[in-house]
């Protein structure tokens, strides 16, 4: 009996660990309160129109940057062309830190850091999509997960000399002059945004295959070195 309990214990612990990153299913009413901080730019519900950001009706299952009558940033258009669709999981990553998914957009919002608040918000937004019921084919009602980077990674100080060498791999495609045609500019980025974006490629939260491959083999120190180099690169 004791042996049996012992053998069960690791399983139980594993289960707990896996669950501990999740918030409970959200609540739409609570989500409406969280949405207050979005309202300055986004409308949702009957009669919603585009403001600084697009309206959020019918968001679930929609491809990013796919409303014809809204003028999206290049970064959102690239994400959409690359296959980003809005579902509970992608919204959860995006809402936690919008800059993990897109860069240089008008969405100058630091993110909803609390996983439970995000779960509420996602349930609230989901009401305004066509398939609000919990059916197996549809998005599950939101369960938020913690994704944010380990603060220790963000705190690393990069070696700009190493970054200068590593940057050679970037500048075959990205122009140091800062052009944004076809391929985004990567100069003068704040270091933390650069690090967040590169880790988002590495963790496959951003969907570009070349960048997933390039970032995939960069270590934490190397990403920090590149961020240190590019933050004040002069032409």
């Amino acid at each position: 009996m004791v042996r049996a309990l012992r053998s069960l214990l690791p399983l139980a612990l594993t289960g707990l660990t896996a669950l501990s990153g999740h918030a409970d299913t959200g609540d739409a009413q609570a989500g409406e309160k969280v949405f207050q901080q979005c309202k300055g730019c986004h409308q949702v519900g009957a009669g919603a129109t585009h403001r600084i950001g697009p309206h959020l009706n019918g968001l679930f299952g929609r491809k990013a940057a796919s409303l014809d009558d809204f003028e999206y940033s290049k970064s959102f258009e690239r994400a959409g062309a690359g296959g980003l669709e809005w579902h509970a999981e992608t919204l959860d990553v995006f809402l936690e830190n919008p800059r993990a998914i897109t860069s240089g957009t008008r969405m100058s919002f630091r993110g909803v850091k609390d996983a439970q608040d995000r779960a509420h918000l996602i349930v609230y937004l989901r009401q305004f999509s066509d398939n609000p019921a919990d059916i197996p084919e549809a998005d599950p009602t939101a369960q938020a997960v913690d994704h944010d980077l380990d603060p220790a990674i963000l705190a690393l100080t990069g070696d700009p000399e190493y970054g200068a060498y590593l940057s050679g791999e970037c500048t075959t495609c990205h122009q140091t002059g800062g052009s944004d045609e076809g391929i985004p500019s990567i100069t003068f980025w704040p270091e933390d945004q650069f690090v967040v974006a590169m880790h988002a490629y590495k963790n496959k939260q951003r969907n570009h295959p070349v960048m997933q491959m390039i970032a995939g083999r960069l270590g934490d120190e190397e990403i920090a070195a590149l961020a240190a180099y590019f933050k004040d690169l002069e032409n």
């Binding site: 062309a81 690359g82 075959t172 495609c173 122009q175 140091t176 045609e181 076809g182």
Partner: peptide, 19 residues
């Protein structure tokens, strides 16, 4: 959409590598 973005990316690459 993906194919168009890939082409536009190649144009960006050409400008990048020649610079």
């Amino acid at each position: 959409d993906v194919r168009k973005a890939t082409y536009e990316e190649s144009e960006g690459w050409y400008a990048g590598i020649t610079a």
